[in-house]
Amino acid sequence: MYIVKRILIMLLTIWVIASLTFLIMKFIPGDPFASDADVLPEEVLQNIRAKYNLDEPIAVQYVLYMKDLVTFDLGFSIQSETRSVNSIIADGAPASALLGLQALVIALALGLLLGIVAALNHNKVLDYASMFIAIIGISVPSFILAPLLIKYFAVEWGMLPVASWGTWQHSILPTLALAATPLAVIARFMRSSMLEVTNQNYIKTADAKGLSKTKLVIRHGIRNAILPVISFIGPLFVSLITGTFVIEKIFAIPGIGRYFVDSIFNRDYPVIVGTTIFFSVLLVLTLFIIDISYRYIDPRIKLTSGGE
């Protein structure tokens, strides 16, 4: 019952996001055919508008869109009229998802390591070194890091390809550029909550019992300290695997990141709502899984008043 209810609420949330996005994008001035208006005769423009139902009142357009949506048909792109939004997503998602997953794994692994090392060596050299790396990572955004990585690793030292997509070597630089900031944030979170956990009595008890340092850190330390990182990586995961505009543009990666931005500038209405729905489905699912996972990480957490 609980699961059924949650799924209904998720569908409702996605519907609200899609509807609000639809309304906002129709409210914003602009015309997908603005650049064609000078060259094409008025009658032709009228016909094209009719093809995309843009001549109908907004309420009718909305109903027509929702009808298609029920059958998982996201419509056709206005910008590239031969392509359906479904196929745009299907073509671009694998590259974006692979890149995003790699970046997340690296950010998580190194970020946790840095944070834990820093906390265990509080106010010592290793702590300062880790936090120095973290501050650099937070202060240097990906749009600056990416050109620097290309300049040194690809252009000057010729170790890795400059851009494009294909072999695994192509994915190294964009992965690093994408992972840097989340890595730094995860390290900061982990350090802060590890420091708080190490002051707790159960750590002192376990230490006094003679538990080995490794077991102490893994069983009692990390498990109690990791919750903020888990909360943080939920939305991060979704943003990373649905591609990032800046990184995909700089490295010429055939992902879907650019459609989220380009579609809005081109007023490519079906692509705007289509990509938003794609993003929202992943978001709502991920946040649900994160909520469920809280209980497994910390059994004291009670999310609902019922018995689940």
């Binding site: 949330t13 609200v16 996001i17 989220f260 809005i264 929202s280 978001l283």
Partner: peptide, 12 residues
Amino acid sequence: VEILYGIPYLLI
């Protein structure tokens, strides 16, 4: 929270 996160930031 989910709805605000889901609507494209650029549109807002």
